[in-house]
């Protein structure tokens, strides 16, 4: 079996890496990573907006944002993909390549899930930070921009990397709408070979595992570094705060069932 694995990889590594490029659209691992990076990158500014809307005191912002988050959390990603697959060509007026459809879906989906991470980061900061910023005369948005968000986003870096790992795993669903990413490539190989399905999917699993696991290790290392930095701040904090307020700043975002 090991020999079969080696053979399959050496025969098909190019397909797995870049799909049928340059004779076709970009595919394979390259497409997967590109899709994930673009997906989470483009989603990021929207996720901050959604998080701010959910924390807003204005109902006209808070309710739609909360509704959006609950909706996205209640529907399978596959269903959302089909919706986007159906609606985007309708909206634009022409057919759209699967890659773009998948990208749109990921941007919307990640905007919502990343917003939960951002929201947790904002809520984990001590209330005194916002108080101090407002007392100095900053507007709510000014306080967010200069004081709250810089801290929240830095603290949330490990969770953001974890969310990136999730995004990579979500790209696999592109297979269902024929997006030429890595899973699709593996299935192409399997359909050609037919005799070694286990080896093919084993390779597929190994590739995803390597990528995701390394990124998770990176996230863990980031978390240790950030926690160490925060602990340095703890030494100089007033003694009452050390017992009372600090835990809220150090704990990872609470796992909420109903945010």
């Amino acid at each position: 079996m090991a020999y079969a694995v080696f053979q399959i990889v050496s025969d098909n590594w190019l397909l797995l890496l870049v799909g049928q490029y340059p004779n076709g659209p970009l595919g394979g691992i390259a497409a997967t990573l590109l899709l994930s990076l673009l997906g989470i990158g483009l989603a990021f500014p929207f996720s901050v907006l959604v998080a701010l809307a959910r924390l807003s005191s204005w109902r006209v912002l808070r309710w739609p944002a909360t509704g959006l988050v609950y909706t996205m959390r209640g529907i399978p990603l596959l269903m959302i993909i089909f919706w986007v697959y159906f609606l985007v060509p309708l909206a634009i007026g022409q057919t759209v390549p699967g890659f773009v459809t998948m990208l749109c879906t990921l941007v919307i989906y990640e905007a919502v899930f990343l917003s939960e991470v951002v929201r947790a980061g904002i809520k984990a900061l001590p209330k005194g930070q916002m108080d101090a910023a407002r007392a100095l005369g900053h507007s709510h948005l000014g306080a967010m921009r200069f004081v709250i968000l810089p801290q929240a986003l830095y603290n949330m870096l490990p969770s953001i990397v974890s969310q990136f790992v999730s995004t990579i795993q979500e790209t696999t669903l592109g297979y269902v709408i024929n997006v030429p990413e890595l899973t699709f490539a593996a299935n192409q190989i399997n359909n050609q070979l037919l005799t070694r399905p286990f080896e093919v999917f084993f390779i597929l699993a190994v590739i995803y595992f390597s990528v995701c696991w390394s990124l998770t290790q990176l996230a863990n290392r980031l978390e240790r570094r950030i926690a160490a930095k925060r602990a340095g701040g703890l030494a100089a904090m007033p003694k009452q705060m050390t017992a009372r307020q600090a835990p809220a700043a150090i704990e990872p975002p609470a796992r909420e069932a109903s945010p």
Partner: peptide, 8 residues
């Protein structure tokens, strides 16, 4: 403030 609330 009692807790200084400097921006870390």
């Amino acid at each position: 403030f009692q807790n200084f609330n400097l921006f870390p």
